[in-house]
Simulated assay, not measured.
Amino acid sequence: MAQKRKQIPKIQHFVPQFFQRFFSFDNNGKTIGMFETNRNVFKSHVKISSHLGKKYFYGRDGELEEWLAKLESDSAPIFKEMWEKEKLPIPRSTNHFKMLHFLIVLDIRNPIHFKILKNFEQKLPYTKSKISEGNLSNDMIPGLQEQQSDKGKLSSLKSAELLVPDLLNLKYKLIKNKTSSPFIISDNPLIMYNQFLEKRNWKFGSQRDFGLKGLQLFLPLNDSYMLAVYDSNIYKLGNKKEHIVSIDDKKSIDQLNLLQFLNSENTVNFNHKVTEHYIMTLQEKSMKYKKANDEFISVHEIKVPKGNDNLTAQMIEMGVSDLNIRLTLQKLNFISKSYAVKLHKISDQYRENVKFKGQTYKVYTITTIEEN
């Protein structure tokens, strides 16, 4: 008897359906509100089954889609408990690991991530270097192309769990929204921010890397709750003992919603509590800021060891634009010892004992060129 062929979903979601249902219209689990940011089109209902997904985005063989489905089924109860029961995973438990793993994958699986890689690939041959005189080498292009392939997507997503240990020391709490402005999400809902590097005006590389000092992750869970993961050597959120931090400052909530606009590619999403007027107000505010995820390539001259006077070294830096709105949130403050942290060189920007550096949105390659 012939083996029944496995049915592969045609629409493969990059924002999981279970997660979209947390924001469904009247909690119906079937539709969600949508605003197209590039066309200013507001719709109170679109089908979750066909939204925030692309045709065979993770391939036609089903291997990656099946792997993601398992990850989602393991993660869904953890995130549902957060807003339904105000329950967070126990630190360093299996669920804590799963929570962080889901966050990393949610970021890496997004089409924006692969669009950035594509744009790096296209820009690299036309990037000039005053140091080496002429265009940069094309040596990195095959690697960028490989990461965009189905095989590359599978490899990068499956290796995401290697990044989790670097995040285990970060603190995490729930923000409880007590205002009239409901939380919203977007087609790229995980917000990576860094008030610490923003305040220091640190311009070397993008501030969106999982190993950086001052890292902040914000993920709305439904209209009333948001997961906040942050570097507790730099910030404090609420008081030391509370795990649920209530915010009743509308300006703070509006800023968090504004970040969804600036981190999105094409759409923001919401439930029945969000009005068209509120969305249009946020859209207008977003026009004052630069959007995240615009890629850049820079070339820096770096020092070479003494005795190598005939050599010139350059570093090729590939990164993306950051979210930068001078974020200020109620009950989220810098701790006093953060002001003593020194930043002089690249290595200073990373947290202690971080294994993976520059693994997400910034890539450093160093080349040494012999002078003529």
Rank of each mutant, 00 (worst) to 15 (best):
N263L: 07
L227K: 08
S347W: 09
S44W: 01
I297W: 01
F334G: 04
H344K: 09
Y350H: 06
I253N: 08
K123N: 03
D166K: 10
K54N: 05
V304T: 12
T367S: 02
I141W: 00
S206Q: 12
F356Y: 15
I297E: 12
E295V: 10
L68Q: 12
L168K: 14
S49W: 04
L256Q: 12
I78C: 01
N135A: 11
R109A: 05
L64C: 03
Y361G: 03
H344D: 06
N177P: 13
L212T: 10
N169L: 07
T94R: 00
A313T: 02
K171Q: 15
V164K: 14
L167E: 06
E301R: 13
K171P: 03
E66H: 08
K342N: 11
H243M: 14
Y193V: 01
L71F: 02
M280C: 08
T281Y: 07
I247R: 04
V229R: 08
K203P: 00
L52W: 06
I175K: 13
Y230N: 08
L332H: 10
V229N: 09
L106E: 14
K342D: 06
T367D: 08
T360I: 12
K128I: 09
I191G: 01
L311V: 12
W202T: 00
R5Q: 15
L219W: 04
F196L: 10
H101V: 13
M82S: 06
K47D: 15
D61G: 02
Y193H: 13
E36G: 11
K85V: 00
K306D: 12
F296R: 06
L124G: 06
K128S: 12
K115Q: 15
K98P: 02
Q147L: 09
N239C: 03
Q216A: 07
L71A: 09
R39N: 09
S232A: 13
K241R: 12
I131T: 03
T94E: 11
R351M: 08
K55Y: 14
V41S: 11
N233R: 04
Y56D: 07
I48Y: 03
E301I: 05
N110D: 03
F57E: 08
N263P: 09
G238L: 08
K285D: 08
